[in-house]
């Protein structure tokens, strides 16, 4: 009888793959961007951050993902502030977004970071409506992360972004009503 294909040595290697090692390539990209910038044009090293579009492709993707996650985290925070009874239900969501944000912050050079500056998120007065609206916002974030995973040049970074999206999918499966 055959073992489940993924249960052998291959999956053991997968187990050992930490998020840190997955983003290592991206951090490397970030480091390259920063150091490369200094080497190529040392006189511009202290000038204002370059636009995201000018940075290495995966740093731009990471920066965009970070901004989107921060925007949604802000939406969750506003929803919790307006509807404190939702706090227990939404706490796991907050923890997940924080974990995603922390991982991406490691991958994005400081000079490329953008602060969350989304359009103001208006929380509906009724709790059920507010939760439905937030659910839609989470779904949109999921779709954005999937799109960014598709764009990522690093396969490992694509996996990380797709995994973040899958994490959101899991929360949507058990979304509070």
């Amino acid at each position: 009888m055959a073992d489940f294909p993924s249960s052998g040595s291959a999956i053991a290697r997968g187990d050992a793959t930490s998020r840190r090692s997955l983003i290592a390539g991206t951090v490397g990209v970030a480091a390259l961007v920063v150091s490369g910038c200094s080497v190529e044009n040392p006189t511009t090293a202290d000038k204002a951050p370059r636009s995201v579009a000018e940075l290495a492709p995966d740093v731009a993707v990471a920066t965009r993902a970070l901004a989107e996650i921060r925007a949604v985290r802000a939406a969750v925070s506003r929803t919790v502030s307006r509807h404190p009874l939702s706090r227990p239900d939404l706490a796991p969501l907050v923890r997940m977004h924080s974990a995603h944000e922390k991982t991406l912050v490691e991958a994005v050079p400081e000079r490329a970071r953008t602060e969350a500056n989304p359009a103001p998120y208006v929380v509906p007065r009724k709790r059920a409506v507010a939760l439905r609206k937030l659910e839609g916002r989470e779904q949109r974030l999921h779709d954005q992360l999937a799109g960014l995973a598709l764009r990522a040049e690093s396969g490992d970074f694509a996996r990380l972004l797709a995994s973040m999206g899958a994490g959101i999918t899991q929360r949507l499966v058990v979304w509070p009503s």
Binding site: H100, A162, A166, G167, Q170
Partner: peptide, 9 residues
Amino acid sequence: PLSHFPGIG
């Protein structure tokens, strides 16, 4: 159990 990073580790 819900995971922050399904499909990784």
